[in-house]
């Protein structure tokens, strides 16, 4: 999984006790931390959080479009996995396991939000799904705005899969694993979403 850059950044920039972890080759592995967490080691749990939370928070924020829902998903996912650590056979699989749990929760929250939005006639998605960097080129900002508009109207599963693939840069197998579906289904979701996104972008470019 492509997550190394994020991990490095987190370890350098944090103020939580994870900074006391030895860097480099001496850094304890997920399997080791999971083993210690199973024995009730609070420090190990915190280390797991510090290591994996930024990535999950990023994904959840981009799927849901707001911090509050993303934080909710983050906490629920960690709660669930910490409670079920005993069921994890391979401690090294903690990251993908957590991501799958988080993505499922985010997807469910998105569906629920849309359902309540239809029932109570409320607008559920933020006006801007993505938050571009200030120094991003103007045409990129415009494209992101358009993509956000398209994604807002996509089915939740397709939206999640497309974001994982094209925003986060996950491999197809990683997308399928995170969504908890087969590779074929993952591909189909991504393709369906991508077709709509491309159509929208092409249409707009043509109109211009």
């Amino acid at each position: 999984m492509r997550g190394g850059a994020a991990l490095v950044k987190v370890e350098v920039g944090v103020s939580l006790p994870i900074r006391t972890l030895p860097l480099g080759g001496n850094e304890p592995s997920d399997a080791e931390l999971v083993s210690r967490a199973r024995l009730g080691d609070a420090w190990a749990e915190r280390a797991l959080y510090r290591r994996h939370a930024p990535k999950l928070l990023r994904v959840a924020r981009r799927i849901l479009g707001n911090d509050a829902d993303a934080l909710d998903v983050l906490q629920e996912a960690f709660l669930a996995v910490f409670q079920r650590l005993g069921q994890l056979l391979d401690g090294a699989a903690f990251g993908p396991w957590l991501m799958r749990s988080g993505v499922r929760l985010a997807s469910k929250k998105l569906k629920w939000r849309r359902f309540t939005g239809r029932v109570f006639f409320t607008h559920v998605d933020p006006s801007e799904l993505f938050d571009p960097k200030p120094d991003a080129p103007a045409e990129v900002k415009e494209q992101l705005h358009k993509i956000g508009q398209v994604l807002t109207h996509l089915p939740a599963d397709q939206r999640v899969a497309w974001i994982l693939r094209y925003v986060e840069g996950y491999e197809l197998t990683e997308v399928a694993a995170a969504c908890g579906v087969s590779l074929a289904t993952g591909k189909r979701w991504i393709a369906a979403a991508h077709t709509k996104v491309q159509a929208k972008l092409t249409e707009k470019e043509g109109a211009r």
């Binding site: 987190v10 939580l16 959080y49 939370a53 981009r62 911090d67 983050l74 906490q75 960690f78 993505f130």
Partner: peptide, 29 residues
Amino acid sequence: MNEPEAPLSRHLEDPASEALLQAGWQGLE
């Protein structure tokens, strides 16, 4: 399906700010 040249995240702000992570941990506790 086209392979992405580079993920769009390189143009996006990182939402995983330290404040949010801290808030997340406190809420989790």
